[in-house]
Simulated assay, not measured.
Amino acid sequence: MVTSMTGYGREESGNGQVKVFAEIKTVNHRFCEYTIRMPRQLLILEEKVKKKANQYIRRGRVEIFITVEGESLVSKKVKVDWDLADQYVDLMAKVKDTYKLESSITLQDMLQLESIFMTEEVPMVPHDLEASLLKAVSGALDNLKTMRAHEGQELAVDMVNQLNRFREIIAGVKNHAPRVVEKYKARLETKLADLTDGLIEDSRIVTEAAIFADRCDINEELTRLESHVQQFSATLSENEPIGRKLDFLVQEMNREVNTIGSKANDSLITKDVVEMKSLLEKLKEQVQNIE
């Protein structure tokens, strides 16, 4: 099954107090690469989110965004720097004794010393938040999978059409290739007859034609090209990530087409080579979007 690397999925989950929103975007990439953004208090769940995503995604650049609405994910706690408070009290007592002051140290005096009191944020993750988060992520991944599969099938249909056209061109080249030698032999006979007044031996013409035929023989390339096209077509039905395999096959097909173009020495085959290269370029662009 052909699966595109491009897709989008979104889902929400939660209860009356908290809602979790999961948004996932994927684009083509050579490997599987993650970017996960979520509230700092939830970073402890990042590996679980990635593990869940790995069940759906094998290749591509993945961006996951997690947002939470509702109850605060932090609580505030006041702490006292007792060592510093002791120093203040000792110092104020010393000042009082030194200058014979009558006032006493009060709680109000201590509250004015802000450096003694510190506010600390403590992460507070509701007990059911993890389940809600993973549920939202799973829903977003299901939606993403559906979109990637739909786009993948559209790519598959288009690639099958291009492969069918590719087969037609190969069949035409195979049918025309033998005529290239015949045309060369006829031109050679005419040219040599003009130059030698018909005194050239037939054996010489046959030898030259044989040398030319060996030099421009493309049967092996056409056979390998047909094999690659068949493998490409069969791979489209495999139920696993196939993008890298298809990319390799496109490269091999392009190699054979280039060789045919350099050996054929015929204008009609050259025209077919140009069309095959155009089809391969389109296939290459589509393959780069396949997981």
Rank of each mutant, 00 (worst) to 15 (best):
K94R: 08
K94A: 04
V95G: 01
V95E: 02
V95F: 01
T98F: 06
T98C: 00
Y99C: 07
Y99F: 15
K100H: 15
L101V: 12
E102N: 13
S103D: 14
S103T: 08
S104P: 02
S104H: 08
S104D: 13
S104V: 12
S104G: 13
S104N: 14
I105F: 03
I105C: 03
Q108S: 15
Q108F: 15
D109H: 15
D109F: 07
Q112G: 07
L113I: 15
L113K: 01
E114T: 01
E114K: 10
S115K: 09
I116F: 11
I116K: 00
F117Q: 07
F117M: 13
M118P: 00
M118A: 02
M118N: 06
T119F: 00
T119M: 10
T119W: 03
T119D: 04
E120S: 05
E120F: 03
E121M: 04
E121T: 03
E121Q: 09
E121D: 10
P123T: 02
P123N: 10
M124P: 07
M124F: 15
P126N: 01
H127M: 12
H127Q: 11
H127L: 05
H127Y: 08
H127N: 11
H127A: 14
D128A: 08
L129Y: 08
L129G: 07
E130T: 11
A131D: 15
S132D: 05
S132F: 09
L134E: 04
L134N: 07
L134W: 01
K135G: 10
A136V: 04
V137N: 02
V137L: 05
G139Q: 15
A140K: 08
A140P: 10
A140R: 04
L141I: 12
L141H: 09
D142L: 04
N143E: 15
L144T: 00
L144Y: 00
K145T: 04
K145N: 11
K145E: 09
M147Y: 06
R148L: 11
R148Q: 11
R148D: 05
A149V: 14
A149H: 09
H150M: 08
H150P: 00
E151I: 13
E151P: 04
G152M: 04
Q153H: 13
Q153P: 01
Q153G: 05
E154K: 13
E154V: 03
L155V: 14
L155Q: 10
L155G: 12
L155K: 00
A156Q: 09
A156V: 07
A156F: 06
V157H: 12
V157T: 10
D158G: 06
M159Y: 12
M159H: 01
M159N: 08
V160R: 11
N161E: 15
N161M: 12
Q162C: 09
Q162R: 15
N164H: 13
F166V: 07
F166M: 15
F166C: 10
I169F: 00
I169E: 11
I169T: 10
I170W: 01
I170E: 02
A171Q: 09
G172N: 07
K174E: 11
N175Y: 02
N175F: 10
N175E: 11
H176C: 00
A177L: 04
P178L: 05
P178M: 01
P178Y: 13
P178V: 01
R179Q: 09
R179N: 06
R179I: 03
R179V: 05
V180L: 00
V181G: 08
V181C: 05
K183R: 15
K183D: 10
